[in-house]
């Protein structure tokens, strides 16, 4: 799968880097001083690189944990996010990473302890309060877990920090390290879900919806709290039928008690990212959909967006309590009526 690995010189001899390199005995290993020499310089093409991305083993020196955007959260007051990886092994056509980065390589920051140290500092600032840390903003949190081993480290960290809550957002079925550990109430595994046809059409290289549901069921059976993320909602003429079927499918496999939270959010993307996507994939019908520019984001027309959100909220209420449903976008009026975490 990975045929080229770039590695920062300082990390070359570390046991963690050696453990990762050993998993790819035939890959070309290329030394660099800093990952930024390889990742995201000008004149790179995301679409071309996506054909064969390399792994970059790096360390992150600062800004390990950042305050989450205002519309990002699931009920907590203090929301932060962190990215121990940049980019994703999947190739979802609606993904904003395609617009954000020039490079499709995967950057793995292996100085996990620095991330945990930053989280500890934030926890100290919010003594006796719950703090949420979200992973999965710049990457899929679990897709490369067998290589990164991050989840095991995270579980060890969270064991003794009961007020630290983490969401691992994923489309992956790489759940082995979670299944091996006892469940924790402060670690939520949140699966991004789309109707089967939508996933087949736009979520390239991802596990099928059926496989994601199987993974969720296994985790729920072990007692892990599950998050459901219906985000982004993708509109077309069969929107209602597709999402109604999806919700029925999901809740035939999971019971409301298995679910920690559900979020829904319409397709939205900063305008410059969207423009880059259109340039990369000019033939893509999804990107030719009737979007509008609103609050600096490309999204559906407000009325349409509200209809989509209201429909999903209404349907979801057939399966799960309203206080578990959150919306992830404050650009529309619907935000005022539901649980919106800011």
């Amino acid at each position: 799968m990975i045929e080229t690995i770039y590695i920062e010189n300082e990390l070359m001899a570390t046991p963690q880097a050696q453990r990762i390199l050993a998993q790819f005995p035939t890959a070309d290993k290329i030394a660099c001083d800093r990952y930024t020499e390889v990742f995201n310089p000008k004149k790179q093409n995301f679409r071309l690189q996506k054909q064969k991305p390399a792994l970059i083993i790096a360390q992150k020196f600062d800004r390990h944990v950042l305050r989450a955007p205002d519309d990002y959260g699931i009920g907590g007051i203090h929301n932060y996010y962190f990215s121990y990886m940049l980019n994703c092994i999947y190739d979802c056509r609606y993904c904003f990473l395609q617009g954000m980065y020039q490079s499709a390589h995967y950057v793995l920051f292996i100085n996990y302890s620095d991330f945990f140290h930053s989280m500890d500092s934030i926890l100290t600032n919010h003594k006796n309060e719950n703090v949420w840390f979200f992973s999965g903003y710049d990457c899929d949190s679990l897709a490369l877990d067998p290589i990164s081993g991050f989840t095991s480290h995270l579980i060890d960290f969270l064991k003794y920090r009961k007020n630290a809550y983490v969401e691992l957002r994923t489309k992956s079925t790489q759940i082995r390290s979670l299944l091996k550990a006892p469940p924790m109430t402060n670690l939520i595994v949140a699966f991004s879900m789309s109707p089967t046809k939508t996933a087949d059409k736009f979520e390239h290289k991802t596990p099928s919806i059926e496989k994601r549901l199987n993974a969720m069921r296994k985790l729920a059976d072990k007692g892990w709290p599950i998050g459901l993320r219906f985000d982004p909602l993708i509109f077309d003429s069969s929107f209602e039928e597709r999402y109604r079927t999806l919700f029925a499918e999901v809740f035939s496999v999971l019971s409301p008690e298995d679910i920690h939270s559900v979020t829904i959010g319409p397709f939205r993307m900063p305008k410059p990212f969207f423009q880059k996507l259109v340039a990369l994939y000019p033939e893509e019908p999804l990107l030719a959909s009737p979007f509008q520019l609103r609050s600096g984001s490309i999204t559906y027309a407000q009325t349409q967006e509200e209809q989509m959100m209201q429909f999903c909220q209404h349907e979801l209420r057939n399966y799960i309590a309203t206080n578990k449903i959150f919306s992830c976008w404050t650009g529309g009026e619907h935000a005022k009526a539901e649980n919106v975490c800011t």
């Binding site: 045929e3 770039y6 070309d28 290329i30 660099c32 001083d33 020499e37 064969k52």
Partner: peptide, 27 residues
Amino acid sequence: ASSIQDESTCRRWYPPQIICNSMARTS
């Protein structure tokens, strides 16, 4: 070439390796 270094200036470039073929890579 997987990396190119100008010896006199120490500037370095990394041509992305996205072509599948049997040829070896070198700096």
